[in-house]
Design a protein around this nucleic acid. Structure first.
Length: 554
RNA sequence: GCGCCCAUAGCUCAGCUGGAUAGAGCAACGGACUACGAAUCCGUAGGCCAGAGGUUCGAAUCCUCUUGGGCGCACCA
């Protein structure tokens, strides 16, 4: 629809130019938007306003010139108006909107999908929690965002992979090993002091018990340094299994689990460093190797190899991002906790040092989640191993509610997650509101079936019967869906879909309440059922992108 | 000290690339079930978009400063 009008406008400008009515030294971008105010038509453009200055003419005058040159060859426009300071408002013919319903009906689940990505490979890396403890709600928010975003990017034609980066190198795994080893020793009666900065939490004991069950007292007399790897691997594998299980319960599956340690093992860290030294993006100073990140906008250069020849965290990240690029991903999306924001310029420098444009990496920051119970914040202390886990929340409120609520805010704004509201089955809980709209339509269809009324196909329906205001509003909302999907995908903002869904569900509930669908008037009943069918399709499509179920019954 | 993010109705938040009279939900108040699911709907009220300048035809949106919150500033991970 937008494209058609854009073409019409471009042609009009072309004619105005050839007649000498407008100069048009530069062709302006055509911006079309749907006005809030209904009396302003279906689409509006500010074209005349933006042209006022370069043309040095009054905007209304320019609008008149443009309008006089418009030729609506397709016959879709009912009315063109100049309003206010120079807006041009278009109102479409009713049957044009109603075509939307046929479109949805024939495309079904495909409706709204686009191919702007053209199969380009995109990697979405998210969650990437240390395998040293269970996932908490913050990870859940990242998981919901990453998964929905991946779905969204697929919906617009990208070839998307989901990846979990396992931070399994370095000190934290050693500390995990030591924590498990200590609990193991203690459980076998050896009074070994627990490490001060060790991981607390009952899960460590569970791992130690599982270890004892498997190995008995075989490692009881082995000094820690001689069995770090055994305990480390065991701990890591146990935690990863837990993490994977929790994520699956949350409906999230990864295509790849990428191990940080593997980058050290296969020498890719070393090779990355050599490559950067060769390209002069890395240099030696004071006995350390530095990434010349200031070349690419970072505040200061960063150490990659320390004086003692050990690597900083950045070293593996360099190798990791090099690896991502080498796998052919044109676009990388990283989802991080907001406390890592200071790290962004560094990694963007890495990308550029390897010769890729800065904007091939998009970092989305996820703010913390505060859990509320009965309106009161639930205290969380990571140190004491006492925090609300993703598993707790999913068990408590369900995966659907959790996912939807995580996606009702922009990712970079704080989120208060109220457990009581998430379980509530009312308007206040947006998940139920939207799911209910879907289930209500399903229920309506069941009712129709018991009365032997078929859900009509498009050949058996007279769409022009749907002329009431509520019907027009719903149809317009449905027509907007493909745009919403596209914009949400390009902006990396799945939350736009949750807002869209709430609007659409609202229109549906309002309509349903005002107008009885199944009546004596068979033709009208058929048309209304047909409309409802398309609403159902779109709600389901959007919920599916968000990773939320669209139930037939609740 | 330097840098990043945020400030919109009593509360929680939307507001698309700068557009026309700033929107939802909740809470408050008043209404709607002999009919397809009232898990719903309708109405009323609620605003100096933190403050002050600037840019322009036009600013919640862009720029500068101030105030008030959050977070980063490691040869840690």
């Amino acid at each position: 629809m937008k494209n058609t009008v854009t073409d019409i406008l471009l042609e009009a400008l072309g004619r105005a130019k050839s007649k000498g009515e407008l100069q048009l030294v530069e062709m302006p971008a055509i911006v079309l938007e749907s006005p809030r105010e209904k009396s302003h038509g279906d689409l509006a453009t500010t074209l005349a306003l933006t042209l006022a200055k370069p043309e040095s003419k009054a905007p209304r005058k320019i609008a008149e010139i443009i309008v006089s040159n418009i030729q609506d060859t397709g016959g879709i426009i009912a009315k063109t108006e100049i309003a206010g300071p120079g807006f041009i408002n278009f109102t479409f013919k009713q049957d044009r909107w109603q075509q939307t319903l046929f479109e949805i009906d024939s495309e079904g689940a495909e409706y709204g999908l686009r191919n702007i990505g053209k199969g380009e490979k995109v990697l979405v890396e998210f969650v990437s929690a240390n395998p040293t403890g269970p996932l908490h709600v913050g990870h859940g928010r990242g998981a919901a965002l990453g998964d929905a975003l991946a779905n969204l990017l697929s919906a617009v034609g990208y070839d998307v992979s989901r990846e979990f980066y396992i931070n399994d190198a370095g000190r934290q795994i050693r500390l995990l090993a030591l924590s498990v080893w200590t609990k193991y020793q203690q459980s076998q009666g050896n009074d070994v002091p627990f490490p001060e900065d060790g991981y607390h939490g009952s899960y460590i004991e569970e791992i130690a018990q599982a270890f004892a069950k498997l190995h008995g007292n075989k490692y009881l007399k082995v000094p820690f340094d001689d069995c770090v790897d055994v305990f480390g691997d065991f701990g890591k594998e146990s935690m990863l299994l837990d993490i994977r299980t929790d994520l699956e319960a949350f409906g999230v599956r990864f295509d790849t689990w990428f191990s940080e340690a593997s980058l050290l093992k296969d020498n890719s860290v070393q090779r990355s460093i050599e490559e950067l030294l060769e390209s002069r993006n890395m240099y030696e100073q004071d006995g350390a190797l530095w990434l010349r990140s200031t070349l690419f906008g970072d505040d200061k250069d960063r150490v990659v190899v320390k004086q003692d020849k050990s690597y900083t965290y950045l070293a593996t990240d360099i190798a990791y991002h090099r690896n991502k690029l080498a796998r052919g991903f044109k676009s990388l999306v990283n989802i991080w906790g907001a406390d890592h924001h200071g790290y962004i310029p560094r990694v963007q420098a890495v990308i550029q040092a390897f010769g890729h444009p800065k904007d091939s990496l998009h970092v989305l920051l996820v703010q913390l989640v505060a859990i509320l119970r009965n309106g009161q914040p639930v205290p969380m202390s990571k140190r004491a191993g006492n925090f609300v886990t993703l598993r707790d929340v999913v068990q408590d409120v369900g995966s659907d509610a959790a996912r939807f609520i995580f996606l009702t805010r922009r990712s970079d704004s704080h989120l208060d997650f109220d457990l009581n509201i998430a379980k509530e089955q009312s308007r206040e809980n947006p998940v139920y509101y939207v799911q209910y709209a879907h289930a209500r339509i399903a229920s309506l269809f069941r009712e129709a079936e018991t009365r032997n009324i078929a859900i009509p196909t498009k050949d058996a329906v007279n769409i022009s019967l749907l002329g009431r205001e509520e019907e027009q509003n719903i149809i317009k909302a449905l027509a907007k869906y493909p745009e919403v999907v596209e914009e949400a995908a390009l902006a990396y903002e799945p939350h736009r879909l949750t807002f869209y869904l709430q609007d659409l569900a609202g229109l549906m509930h309002n309509y349903y309440f005002k107008h009885r669908v199944i009546t004596e008037d068979a033709a009208l009943t058929a048309a209304m059922l047909f409309l409802m069918k398309q609403v159902k399709t779109v709600i389901k499509s959007a919920l599916t992108i968000l990773g939320v179920n669209a139930p037939e019954k609740m």
